[in-house]
């Protein structure tokens, strides 16, 4: 008898636990990329301001350089971002992201930009404060692609890009859109 009571109580408890927190249609991919970007952008901004801006530029306690391993220095914010993207790609192929620009320092990186990506980069540069969303097919797979403006949040962002010998643009100021974060989610599973 006690077993039957236990089963009934257990069954009632299990039934009370929600099966899923999502609605029947799932989460809108635009909301997902917005959430992902919020995390990326916050981390990136804090690294740029608190490490590079504060410890490198302001207090000159450490340096941040492109060849950070040989120089025993801190990675540049863009490198920190790229390493994060690579670490994510090591763990999952449910989404991917990268930093892109219409004025790239690393030219081969921009060789891969799709037409939609270029359109998005131009859009976020021309429409301050707005994001770009679209869908595209790459290698027979359908992707939801979002582009978010990458803004020069600190003086070091602008000066570093302006002074880099491979930079095709040398008039960036704080607050300027320097490129974009591109996030892709495969829609075909």
């Amino acid at each position: 008898m006690s077993k039957i009571i236990n089963m009934l109580v257990g069954g009632a408890l299990l039934a009370a636990i929600p099966v899923s927190t999502t609605n029947a249609d799932g989460i809108d991919p635009g909301d997902v990329t917005d959430m992902l970007h919020a995390v990326m952008d916050s981390d990136r901004t804090i690294y740029t301001k608190m490490i590079v801006g504060r410890l490198v530029a302001e207090h000159k306690l450490i340096t941040a350089t492109e060849n950070f391993e040989d120089d025993i220095s801190a990675p540049l914010p863009a490198q920190m971002f790229r390493m994060g993207a690579e670490a994510v790609a090591d763990r999952t192929d449910l989404f991917e992201y990268s930093l892109q620009s219409l004025w790239p320092i690393n030219k081969p990186n921009a060789e891969n930009q799709t037409e939609l990506e270029k359109e998005g980069l131009a859009f976020v540069a021309d429409n301050i404060g707005e994001n770009f969303y679209g869908e595209e097919v790459i290698d027979d797979l359908k992707y939801f692609t979002a582009v978010y403006a990458d803004v020069a949040v600190a003086e070091v962002c602008a000066t570093c890009h302006n002074e880099h010998k491979d930079s095709p643009r040398t008039d960036f100021k704080v607050g300027d859109v320097m490129g974009g974060v591109v996030i892709r989610i495969p829609l075909d599973g």
């Binding site: 790609a89 192929d93 991917e96 081969p108 060789e111 891969n112 790459i138 797979l141 591109v182």
Partner: peptide, 18 residues
């Protein structure tokens, strides 16, 4: 050797053209 061209540089949709 801090490989200049690790295989991961060629993965993902973003590297389809390459």
């Amino acid at each position: 050797a801090n490989d200049s061209h690790p295989t991961k540089k060629f993965r993902g949709a973003k590297k389809a053209k390459t």
